[in-house]
């Protein structure tokens, strides 16, 4: 008779031990993540000042210099990628939600988008090299934008579709009943109603591509000088971090950290912004 309470006790103890182990295991991985953030801020912030944003890189081995060209370059490369990728993605998203719906073709397109999203970024880089760099004969910011556009398209297509599917049919009917053609209904009623969600998708995609390095290695390539011409090789923040971190110069390591702060801040800001927008949509419903 005595064994019964003993077993109950053992079960209780086992439960407590297990829960404690789970909590410990869950907390351990937060440590490196916390350290990454702390180290970036600690190492990087001390090197950040106005000059760092305004100056060009110093020649190899010399100290000082800044990342003005990489900052401008990232904006140009990502900007062109958005210009290429967003219209294609939104129209494809419209096809999936308004025309394709549950058809076989639409399903194949969705699978293709998933496959495209899973293609390793380095492979995207090879493809952009073959499609743009080789025919042009030289590296260029534009080829980098093509690579990044390929990476953002699947993200924006799927969010656009999801968001437009949430737009109630009664709004489409209201517009059609006023004698508005379907295409105008889509562009002027359906798309504007889902615009906040589509914007969220674009922001998430931009946050992802802004930090991409691998697809730029043999497309945008990098450039020690300032250029605004997208047909020339161009520098970008992630390229600076990679090149400086793997260089033998201590001053460049310092600048790699400082650049990492700038890039992290940009990406976090975009992600937080997209989340705030997403919350707003959820709140409206």
């Amino acid at each position: 008779m005595n064994t019964y309470p003993a077993r109950e006790n053992w079960r209780r103890i086992k439960n407590q031990i297990a829960v404690i182990i789970i909590i410990l295991l869950a907390l351990i991985p937060t440590l490196p993540l916390f350290f990454i953030l702390a180290n970036i801020i600690h190492e990087g912030l001390r090197s950040i000042n106005l000059d760092f944003f305004l100056h060009l890189p110093a020649p190899p081995g010399e100290t000082g210099g800044g990342i003005s060209n990489a900052l401008v370059g990232t904006f140009i490369i990502v900007g062109i990628a958005v210009i290429i990728g967003v219209p294609i993605s939104i129209l494809a998203g419209i096809y999936l939600s308004e025309y394709g719906k549950d058809s076989k073709l639409a399903e194949i397109i969705r699978i293709s988008a998933d496959v495209l999203q899973g293609v390793p970024s380095i492979v995207i880089g090879i493809v952009a090299y073959a499609w743009v760099v080789r025919p042009m004969g030289h590296f260029s910011a534009f080829s980098g934008s093509v690579a990044l556009a390929l990476m953002m398209i699947p993200v924006v297509v799927r969010t656009t579709e999801e968001v437009l599917r949430l737009v109630p049919d009664i709004l489409r009917e209201a517009s059609l009943a006023l004698g508005v053609p379907y295409w105008r209904t889509v562009m002027k009623v359906v798309l504007p109603t889902g615009m906040v969600g589509v914007t969220t998708g674009i922001l998430i995609a931009v946050a992802r591509i802004a930090g991409e390095t691998a697809p730029l290695l043999f497309t945008a390539f990098g450039n020690q000088f300032m250029t605004l011409n997208p047909m020339e090789p161009m520098n970008a923040l992630p390229l600076v971090i990679f090149n400086y971190a793997t260089s033998p110069y201590e001053d460049w390591w310092r600048q790699a950290w400082a650049t990492a702060v700038v890039l992290t801040f940009m990406v976090l800001l975009l992600n937080i912004l997209s989340r705030i927008l997403a919350k707003r949509i959820a709140g409206e419903k």
């Binding site: 109630p168 009664i170 709004l171 009917e173 209201a174 009943a177 504007p192 109603t193 615009m195």
Partner: peptide, 9 residues
């Protein structure tokens, strides 16, 4: 329509 459907935007 049955349910009021002003355009929300």
């Amino acid at each position: 329509f049955q349910r009021p459907n002003p355009f929300p935007t």
